[in-house]
């Protein structure tokens, strides 16, 4: 047995499983997004492929057959992108100082912090968002306290802010870890040099720390933005059916609405947005480093 053949035998089972259970389904989904709904499984397999589902995202047929603009889906897309962007910025703003601080700790301190930051990632997302449901709910003490101070009644749950809090809570560790890996290897004498050359702390942060942190910032931003865009649990629990995101309307098409082709269309669009953002980030980083 040659080395190459043995390698192929070892590698192919894992690759096949992923290609068959992730790659093939994605291709099939892209095909289904071109079909009509119908049949028992929600897809009319014999229908001719067309872009009708994609047209439906923006245009709606009126009763008399004219096409009118339908902003419903566009708004949900915009809200998803905006919430994902806000979460990314919040996570970076909180993650950068934490990563800087972690890099200044002793070896044991770093290990402990690393474990503390990683643990939430491995605990159940559903359960962690449920914890916020308990904290923010109407008869909870946080809500009572806020309402005591506020001159008008405030509802903490079921709005964009609650979803943003929940999303940041869910994905914040994803910015801390890549930033920490950058700062861990950072030669802090560069900062001394900047200081000796008369740079203020703010200037040193902007001209020395941030450029070096760029790969960490890009990686962290992607790691937060992408899962946020496809978030389902957080808006379902903390948005309470009022603050919908892309994930929720995709689920609806496969649930109550039983329009699988349209659900597939929404999922393809989600993937497309994700690809655009990833490419933009990669291009931006290349331009920065070039």
């Amino acid at each position: 047995m040659s080395v190459a053949f043995r390698r192929l035998c070892l590698l192919s089972p894992a690759l096949l499983v992923i290609l068959l259970l992730v790659g093939v389904p994605l291709c099939l989904m892209a095909w289904v997004s071109l079909l009509d709904k119908g049949g028992s499984a929600g897809v009319d397999w014999s229908s001719a492929p067309s872009a009708a589902n994609y047209v439906r995202l923006v245009w709606e047929e009126d009763f008399d057959g004219t096409m009118i603009l339908n902003t419903g889906y566009l708004l949900i897309f915009l809200r998803s992108v905006a919430l994902a962007a806000v979460t990314t910025v919040l996570s970076l703003a909180l993650g950068l100082p934490v990563a800087l601080w972690m890099a200044s700790l002793s070896r044991t301190g770093r290990d402990v912090m690393l474990l503390l930051i990683t643990i939430p990632f491995w605990t159940n997302l559903l359960v962690r968002n449920y914890a916020w449901l308990i904290i923010l709910r109407e008869d909870g003490w946080v809500s009572q306290f806020v309402n005591m101070l506020s001159p008008w009644p405030v509802q903490l749950l079921y709005n964009d802010a609650a979803v943003a809090i929940g999303l940041t809570y869910s994905f914040l560790p994803f910015t801390i870890l890549p930033l920490y890996t950058v700062f861990e290897k950072f030669d802090w004498r560069l900062l001394e040099a900047a200081h000796d050359l008369g740079a203020t702390r703010r200037r040193a942060l902007r001209r020395v720390v941030l450029p070096i942190a760029t790969p960490g910032i890009v990686a962290g931003a992607l790691l937060v933005f992408i899962p946020c865009l496809g978030a389902f649990v957080t808006p379902a629990l903390l948005g309470g059916g009022k603050t919908l995101m892309l994930g929720n309307i995709i689920q609806m098409q496969f649930g109550a609405s039983r329009n699988w082709p349209f659900g597939a269309t929404l999922a393809v669009v989600l993937l497309a947005i994700m690809l655009v953002v990833m490419t933009a980030m990669a291009l931006w980083r290349n331009r920065r480093t070039a």
């Binding site: 389902f232 994930g247 995709i250 597939a264 989600l270």
Partner: peptide, 10 residues
């Protein structure tokens, strides 16, 4: 990949 996309595709 976003999990919801892979889940509905599967």
């Amino acid at each position: 990949l976003p999990e919801i996309v892979v889940a509905v595709a599967t």
